[in-house]
């Protein structure tokens, strides 16, 4: 970590705090998120519903809702701070740097425009060579649809989203996100709303396409199993913090944070009941979150110190960080600090 410079990452998020204005006041959702992705790396964010996964990636793509407020922190994209970027550069970032695939394939395509016209529009604003040329748009659209294993691209281009199946629509979203080169693809639970039988195929296509196009990937999922299958590294998120991160293999070999341990124990139940059933208690109220470690109220090992200050991310083996005081003694370093 310390030898690496922010330029080596496609994305480097540091100590990000984000809150939302609501009727009752501000909810402090992201509480110092740290996350980075190398070029061509695939990472996954895992955590129970409401822990702030979407908020994290929306911050990166700069598509947060109007009532969101970034309180502090830095977000570097290819070494440039997104939060202080001039508007023009931000536009370029959106047009050609990041693309986002959403959870709901039904709602992620505009219902009253044809698939083809939407895909062409994306290419048009991507800044790729010949982007303004109708023929280039057409060719790239057809190529992208074919590469995503969609049959009969011509027909699909002339169809409206509601005329196609969920699996096809999600493939179209993948095709769209990779119709021009992207440094980073963000997929926010891209298969939750699909048939179980189709989920696997769509994920495979996604992985394959990202690899072929040499993009980096951030995949959000509820499922540690999916994360392991798809990602080089996994981030475990709880209540606005990354509580543990490690290479996929390492994490399954040695999971340390009490929350990760809880998650691992309920893996067989994941598809049915969901994470929160495995661990007693529930997410804190973001309006008035606990001052120290946000997991402390649910943690069987909590000591008074946990309730006072949030533990930093201790490095316990290469690229394996845990935000828990129990690992302070074995730590070789702390994320964000020189050793």
């Amino acid at each position: 970590m310390t030898q690496e410079n922010k330029n080596d990452f496609v994305v480097d998020v540091r100590n990000l705090h984000v809150s939302f204005r609501t009727f009752k006041g501000y909810t402090h959702v992201l509480n110092g998120v740290n996350l980075n992705v190398r070029k061509r790396e695939r990472i996954s964010i895992v955590g129970e519903t409401g822990c702030g996964k979407t908020t994290t990636v929306y911050s990166i793509a700069q598509i947060l809702a109007q009532n969101a407020r970034i309180d502090s922190g830095e977000i570097y994209f290819n070494g440039r701070n997104v939060l202080t970027m001039p508007n023009k550069e931000l536009k370029a970032l959106r047009a050609s740097g990041v693309s986002v695939i959403f959870q709901d394939p039904i709602a992620s395509l505009n219902p009253v425009f044809t698939v083809g016209s939407q895909m062409k529009e994306v290419i048009r604003y991507s800044g790729v060579e010949g982007a303004g040329d109708k023929k280039v748009q057409e060719e790239r659209t057809i190529a992208a649809l074919k590469e995503t294993h969609l049959p009969d691209p011509e027909r699909i281009m002339n169809s409206y989203p509601f005329q196609l199946s969920g699996g096809m629509r999600q493939r179209i979203c993948i095709a769209m996100s990779l119709s021009t080169p992207r440094d980073l693809v963000i997929a926010d639970e891209p298969t939750t709303n699909l048939d179980v039988t189709i989920q696997d195929q769509v994920l495979k296509t996604l992985k394959q396409r990202v690899q072929e196009k040499e993009s980096a990937l951030i995949l959000i999922t509820h499922s540690l199993g999916v994360a392991r299958q798809m990602a080089d590294r996994i981030y475990v998120m709880y209540a606005g913090n990354m509580v543990e991160t490690a290479r996929s293999g390492d994490l399954f070999r040695r999971y340390c944070h009490p929350y990760t341990q809880g998650l691992m124990q309920c893996i067989p139940k994941l598809s049915g009941g969901g994470i929160s059933e495995g661990i007693p208690g529930h997410l804190p109220n973001y309006m008035d979150p606990p001052p120290g470690c946000r997991f402390a109220p649910r943690c069987p090992y909590a000591v008074p110190e946990c309730r006072q200050a949030q533990p930093p991310l201790y490095e316990i083996e290469p690229e394996h960080y845990v935000s828990c005081y129990r690992y302070r003694d074995q730590a070789s370093g702390v994320m964000g600090e020189e050793v």
Binding site: A95, F102, S108, L109, N110, P111, V112, E121, M176
Partner: peptide, 26 residues
């Protein structure tokens, strides 16, 4: 609030075009 509006913003389609074309029509 629909994801397609977020997606259009994320793809860098100009804000005015999103409002007057992609949101107005539906």
């Amino acid at each position: 609030k629909k994801p397609y509006a977020d997606a259009e913003r994320a793809y860098g389609i100009p804000e005015r075009k999103i409002l007057f074309k992609y949101l107005l029509k539906p």
